[in-house]
């Protein structure tokens, strides 16, 4: 059985199936985080004046800034790993993908440090509505990071065998995984100011 347009683009839409599929998935992700951002706004409006800002002072801005930079870097290396494949440089692909994975591990480690220091200070999701939405949003974002790491890890390890047999299909897969990874980065770009800075 052959499904058409897995590798070649359909002429009238100019797309391969997986490209359309991932964008639809990302659209649904926009709505998922949209629901949570909407909850953030609703809770912020319902809280006493300035309370959200005050509760937010507990968060560690320097660590989060570092995390933002790490995640942006990982996004660049992700797109570079795709570009390397486009230039037929499999070794560079492995290198960039490796850096991407390292960055994601770094991100999670810093997140872990942040979480545990909050718990040590007796701050939990149940402390107030700001902390509740903070832990929910960053936690869900963290799950997305882990999901992306699994995919990227697979594509770097066992999945990369495909490069030898179907290079174009494999490059497409990297592009699709990249789209997801950039989206996770994009969500963080909004989470960071909304949670840490406002």
């Amino acid at each position: 059985m052959e499904i058409p347009y897995t590798v070649e683009e359909r002429p009238d839409t100019g797309l391969i199936n997986s490209k359309l599929g991932i964008w639809l998935f990302l659209a649904s992700e926009v709505m998922l985080f949209g629901g949570l951002f909407s909850a953030y706004v609703f809770l912020r409006l319902g809280a006493p004046d300035g309370a959200f800002h005050e509760w937010g002072q507990e968060l560690n801005v320097p660590l989060a800034t570092l995390n933002t930079l790490i995640l942006i870097s990982s996004s660049v290396t992700m797109v570079m790993s795709w570009a390397s494949l486009k230039m037929n440089d499999f070794k560079k692909f492995k290198m960039y993908m490796g850096i991407t994975l390292l960055c994601s591990v770094g991100f999670l480690v810093i997140k872990y440090i942040e979480y545990t220091s909050k718990f040590h200070h007796g701050i939990f999701p149940s402390t107030n509505t700001f902390m509740a939405i903070y832990f929910t949003l960053t936690g869900l974002h963290g799950l997305h990071i882990i999901g992306g790491m699994i995919v990227n890890g697979f594509l770097m390890g066992p999945g990369s065998k495909m490069w030898k047999t179907e290079p174009e299909h494999f490059t497409n897969r990297i592009e699709i995984a990249g789209l997801y990874w950039h989206f996770v980065d994009l969500v963080w770009i909004f989470l960071f100011p909304v949670l840490y800075l406002l």
Binding site: M78, G178, L186
Partner: peptide
């Protein structure tokens, strides 16, 4: 920032 990521990386 978001538009930059979406426009160029994606």
């Amino acid at each position: 920032k978001g538009s930059l990521v979406a426009s160029y990386f994606m």
